[in-house]
């Protein structure tokens, strides 16, 4: 049962990811990406990492992807046109991908012993434990990450700001266009 579910969700994740590349319309691609996120969350859930699964859905599928969809809707982006320019990608793309995947699989297969398959509930990620780890063992990385995010937020605000008063006449013309 567990293995069946694993293959269902893993297959769904890969299928959605391939569909993401094949679709021409940005909204359809965005929807496929949501599918990938949801399948990943299901896989986390099967490992017993409930909190991570919920965070994956809330943050990625529920917030970030909503913004993606919002922007695509707002800009009313149309279908992309296929160009057949890159002959390199056309003929060598698939073999190279296969090579990459097989080499990765070979390395992982050699590194991990046979019976070390991850099973259901291997990560008893109770929310309280995660919180304790974050705020006791990994406090510094946690705070550093939050400061990095804060810097990014401030950067966005500065970039997106309408500067009407502070700028010279030349720049005001640019912003009017």
């Amino acid at each position: 049962m567990y293995q069946l579910l694993f293959f269902v969700f893993a297959g769904a994740a890969v299928g959605f990811a391939i569909n993401l590349l094949l679709q021409r319309h940005p909204i359809h691609s965005a929807l496929s990406l949501i599918g990938v996120m949801a399948s990943l969350a299901s896989l986390y859930l099967m490992l017993g990492a409930e909190f991570i699964a919920a965070a994956q859905i809330i943050v990625y599928a529920g917030a970030i992807m909503v913004l993606f969809v919002f922007v695509i809707m707002l800009l009313n982006a149309g279908e992309e046109e296929r160009t057949q320019r890159s002959r390199f990608a056309k003929y060598l793309g698939l073999p190279l991908i296969l090579l990459l995947v097989t080499s990765m699989a070979a390395v992982i297969y050699r590194q991990v012993p046979q019976d070390a398959m991850v099973r259901f509930g291997d990560f008893p990620g109770r929310t309280a434990d995660i919180g304790r780890r974050l705020f006791l063992n990994y406090l510094l990385p946690f705070e550093v990450v939050s400061i990095v995010i804060l810097v990014a937020i401030i950067g966005t605000v500065v970039l997106a700001r309408k500067d009407s008063e502070t700028e010279g006449p030349g720049k005001a013309v640019v912003s009017e266009k």
């Binding site: 919920a54 965070a55 859905i57 809330i58 599928a61 529920g62 917030a63 909503v66």
Partner: peptide
């Protein structure tokens, strides 16, 4: 609670 939040965010 997180489950409800995640479902409602979808």
């Amino acid at each position: 609670v997180l489950f409800i939040l995640s479902v409602s965010s979808m």
